[in-house]
């Protein structure tokens, strides 16, 4: 379904994507995993024909660059955050993108129901919450039922609650014979949705493995998600890094990977530095397991 061969994209002298080759068969579900700046989003943009790149990408038999329109017709795309037509009414937005996909009469009600946004079609896009916006984006991506779904850090800008909900929809979608490629740095998402994991580092594809071996090799026990007021976040990051953790910022707080027997350590560390922790949440492998079974190796 998707064939990438020697894909390289340079911005000036820096190779954002460096000689990536990968093949996704129909029904495959591959997670792009790696730290920020590893080239996941750039690779996805190359796939969508948004960047000039070296190498060849074929989507459903169409070259992503030279026949981008054909290629993209097979792809439903959900970005990290949609920023379009704020003044538009939801129904009209859906109809517009439906038209661009050549769907003459879009079933707006049905589409919205499918993503859990029934009766919202008269609302302005501006007035939707983050999670609802992402579900709208998903609804648009599913218009016309494309065989490929491409997701780029789709939950990165959502809060915990929104992410839970959104994941549950995605969970339903995978395995319907649809090919999925998504970028994420959340192990729970990967575990829930992916069959295989492609690990990226500084633009290179360092490993492609099935999700089970990925889970074991990256078997950090759990993540602690800390809700910390925005102004103290930078200092908290410093404190945690100095304390031997590898903290990561996300939209609403800090995520710290921890060993299973040290879940309280980051909070204690911050308390000693007099940084207020408003709330915390433990995300363990067990939680991820609860959502969906881990697929066996393919």
């Amino acid at each position: 379904m998707i064939i990438m061969h020697g894909v390289t994209k340079r911005f000036r002298r820096i190779a954002a994507v460096d000689n990536v080759s990968m093949t996704l068969d129909a029904g495959d579900s591959v997670a792009l995993w790696g730290p920020n700046g590893a080239g996941k989003s750039t690779l996805i943009r190359c796939l969508l024909g948004l960047h000039r790149h070296k190498g060849v990408i074929t989507v459903n038999g169409h070259n992503a660059r030279s026949h981008g329109k054909r290629a993209r017709a097979s792809i439903g795309y959900v970005p990290q955050e949609i920023g379009f037509y704020d003044d538009l009414v939801v129904g009209e937005a859906i109809r517009h993108f439906g038209r661009l996909r050549g769907i003459r009469r879009t079933d707006i009600d049905g589409t919205l129901e499918r993503v859990g946004l029934p009766g919202q079609l008269a609302k302005r896009v501006r007035d939707l919450s983050g999670g609802m916006k992402q579900r709208l984006a998903l609804a648009i991506a599913l218009l016309g039922d494309p065989p490929i779904l491409v997701l780029d850090e789709v939950t990165a800008s959502l809060d915990a609650c929104g992410r839970e909900e959104f994941m549950s929809f995605l969970g339903q979608l995978s395995g319907a014979g649809r090919t999925m490629l998504f970028a994420s740095h959340r192990i729970d998402e990967i575990a829930a949705l992916a069959k295989r994991v492609a690990v990226m580092e500084s633009g290179r594809l360092t490993a492609v493995m099935d999700v089970a071996s990925f889970a074991s090799s990256h078997g950090v026990g759990s993540f602690v998600h800390l809700a910390i007021p925005e102004r103290t976040r930078p200092r908290a990051m410093c404190v945690l890094s100095e304390g031997g953790f590898e903290p990561r910022l996300n939209g609403v707080g800090i995520i710290v990977p921890v060993r299973t027997d040290q879940k309280a350590a980051p909070i204690a560390l911050l308390a000693r530095a007099s940084i207020t922790v408003d709330d915390f949440e433990i995300i363990s492998r067990a939680t991820a397991d609860a959502h969906a079974p881990i697929h066996g190796p393919t």
Binding site: A73, S74, D107
Partner: peptide, 20 residues
């Protein structure tokens, strides 16, 4: 209100350039 069943066309054929 539109409640008709959606008519989806095969996606390998995106709309003609002029239509887009």
């Amino acid at each position: 209100m539109q409640t008709t069943v959606s008519l989806t066309s095969p996606l390998s054929r995106p709309p003609h350039t002029l239509v887009t």
